[in-house]
């Protein structure tokens, strides 16, 4: 799968969010996108997912140009996106209901998706009975049930506490190790990015361009203990160094922007 991005300019308020992004992601790779706050990484992902239109440039996925949201561009949102009026099973079923096939097949399919994210046994629980991590896993299951070609995750663990992040992150890693879908993963957490992905893309502060692309060479399957190794720390330090300069710039710009 080749995702080709070019330059964008968004918002008629002449705020240039993304300035000249060219990038290709190999099929089946797990790519993280990191950058300082407000740099536009979510905007970039939104463009890939078809949620937003780039002002200039084009995105193609597997040869087809992206013109709008679709099932093949599975999107996991940062905010809570599960439907509170449906059970976990109901939520995953939602992705399957209008796709044909017998009802029983759909239910079986939904169940296996929930098993994939580690929620077997919680099929009949309502979101009000679930923790934040569980709800995000339901959202992931729902997205996967639609059999997307690419999975886009926009800081999916942003609202979760540190421990839950690690656990759900590991879950995502396992899923990827099993399915090998192409995943684009936006996060602000350097450790998370290194731990989960093959490749880390660093964006600059607004207007964003690609500063650096770092390959993460660790083999799969990976364990969380990887974070303690020297090699891991080296990569983390390198990324941190690149980021900290940008982060300061972004901070100053944000403050100025809010004051206007």
């Amino acid at each position: 799968m080749r995702g080709i991005f070019k330059s964008f300019r968004t918002k008629a308020r002449t705020v240039i969010a993304l300035a000249g992004i060219d990038f290709t992601a190999a099929k089946g790779s797990f790519v993280s996108i990191i950058g300082p706050s407000g740099c536009g990484k979510s905007t970039l992902l939104a463009c890939v997912g078809g949620m937003e239109r780039p002002t200039a440039g084009q995105i193609t996925v597997d040869g087809r140009v992206v013109t709008g949201p679709s099932r093949r561009l599975g999107y996991v949102f940062q905010e809570e996106s599960v439907f509170p009026w449906r059970t976990a099973l109901g939520n995953v079923l939602f992705a399957l209901e209008d796709q044909g096939g017998s009802k029983n097949d759909q239910i079986d399919n939904a169940r296996s998706m929930l098993r994939l994210v580690g929620l077997q046994g919680f099929e009949n629980a309502y979101p009000s009975e679930m923790s934040g991590g569980m709800k995000q896993r339901v959202a992931i299951a729902r997205v996967l049930a639609a059999e997307p070609e690419v999975v886009l995750m926009d800081e999916p663990f942003g609202a979760l506490d540190q421990q839950t992040r690690l656990m759900v992150g590991e879950q995502v890693l396992r899923i990827w190790e099993e399915t090998h879908q192409t995943i684009l993963f936006v996060t602000h957490d350097i450790q998370e990015a290194i731990l989960l992905s093959n490749e880390v893309v660093v964006l600059s502060a607004r207007p964003a361009r690609i500063l650096e692309r770092v390959t993460v060479p660790f083999p799969h399957p990976r364990e969380a203990s990887l974070a303690g190794t020297h090699e891991f720390a080296d990569i983390a330090a390198r990324l941190w160094h690149t980021l900290s300069g940008e982060a300061k710039k972004a901070f100053i710009e944000n403050e100025a922007g809010a004051a206007q």
Partner: peptide
């Protein structure tokens, strides 16, 4: 957004 993504 979910509805759009799932092509509902």
């Amino acid at each position: 957004k979910v509805a759009r993504m799932l092509e509902v």
